[in-house]
């Protein structure tokens, strides 16, 4: 319950379209008609004081008052949860989740005490969404601070106010979940790394890599910006896609070699129809022949889709892609400078 300042040092990135929608929630209720699950009582006061090591005599005896910092404790839902949270607050949370701000951390709270609470007091409370900050970039990641203010009353009389602030943010590196690292604010981007794709406000779901135990090593490599090719240790054959055995000699043992990054477009398509929400047609997808002699399917960047050509030299890059549920890395191939001037060869 310290008065920390989670926003200290955060950089204001300016308003955006999402912020306008978030801002509209200011002043709307976060909880209405809340009632304390228990009246203020000596047992909870004693437990609190023992847990806090607080031996102040005012909290004991026939004329005891509750420790003022217990203000929020009287409003808590316990294991059975809250039933009084407002639709507005749920909408706000969903909007932030949809924008990729799926992580949450409580940053600080402030309390005001207008009258003591005593055993037997029945409390009621209401909360309001007091403010939503512009988008901020913090060490945890980029997101929005949401501040609620709860007014606690006894017999209709205001007894105290509890202001509570959280940060809803896009999870960044260092807080990787099962989906792998999500380098939102990589402090030292690798050379040649393209800018992340547009921020995922309301971003529709993108198809994810399909990862199992047989190809997890490939995607772990991609997360580290390394494109790893399987190599059969029986016959030395390089292979892509990854498989737990060699299609030439049948040997199960393998190691990996890292792709140098050079390649050419072996074939390609330009996607027009049907539309997929996460993609913006027309877009090109190519079968890349790596200089090592293996192939993989990847996007082509650096040229418009109608300028991609068979035989075009390309170079490996890694691109961060995101949707409303996360971010991950993909190998992409950038057309080498001048490559797009090749004449149109067909159709």
């Amino acid at each position: 319950m310290s008065g920390g300042d989670g926003a200290r040092g955060a950089a204001v990135s300016g308003d955006d379209a999402l912020y306008a929608r978030l801002k509209a929630f200011e002043g709307r209720p976060a909880a209405t008609g809340g009632r304390g699950k228990d009246p203020v009582n000596a047992a909870m006061i004693r437990h609190w004081c023992e847990a806090m090591g607080d031996t102040h005599p005012a909290y004991r005896g026939p004329d005891a008052v509750a420790p003022p910092t217990m203000l929020q404790a009287w409003t808590m839902g316990g294991l059975s949860g809250h039933t009084d949270r407002s639709p507005a607050y749920d909408e706000l949370s969903a909007l932030l989740d949809g924008a990729g701000c799926t992580a949450v951390v409580a940053t600080d709270c402030e309390q005001e005490y207008l009258r003591p609470l005593r055993p037997g007091d029945e409390i009621t409370f209401d909360a309001v969404i007091e403010s939503v900050s512009p988008r901020k970039t913090t060490k945890l990641g980029s997101g929005y601070f949401v501040t609620t203010r709860m007014d606690v009353r006894v017999d209709g009389e205001l007894a105290g106010a509890h202001r509570f602030r959280i940060l809803k943010y896009v999870p960044g590196k260092g807080s990787s979940g099962p989906g792998g690292p999500a380098p939102e604010a990589d402090p030292a981007p690798r050379k040649g790394t393209p800018e992340p794709v547009a921020a995922p406000r309301d971003a529709p779901a993108r198809p994810r890599p399909v990862i199992n135990r047989d190809n997890a090593g490939f995607w772990a490599g991609v997360a580290e910006h390394r494109l790893l090719i399987q190599r059969c240790t029986g016959c030395g054959r390089l292979r892509m896609p990854w498989l737990p055995g060699c299609a030439r000699c049948g040997a199960p043992e393998w190691d990996t070699v890292e792709a140098g990054g050079g390649g050419t477009v072996h074939s390609y398509v330009v996607m027009h129809h049907p539309p997929f929400p996460a993609f913006d047609p027309p877009y090109a997808v190519a079968l890349i022949a790596l200089e090592e002699g293996v192939r993989l399917v990847a996007g082509v960047t650096g040229v418009p889709p109608d300028a991609v050509r068979v035989g075009m030299p390309v170079r490996l890059e890694f691109q961060q892609v995101r949707d409303g549920k996360g971010a991950w890395e993909l190998p992409v191939f950038r057309a080498e400078p001048g490559a797009a001037r090749a004449p149109r060869e067909e159709g």
Binding site: P207, P209, V210, D214, V269, M271, V297, V332
Partner: peptide
């Protein structure tokens, strides 16, 4: 095994 084989094509948008 089957889903993963097709899965190589999905992230870059080769979907149909």
């Amino acid at each position: 095994a089957e889903g993963t084989a097709l899965g190589w094509n999905l992230p870059p948008g080769l979907l149909t």
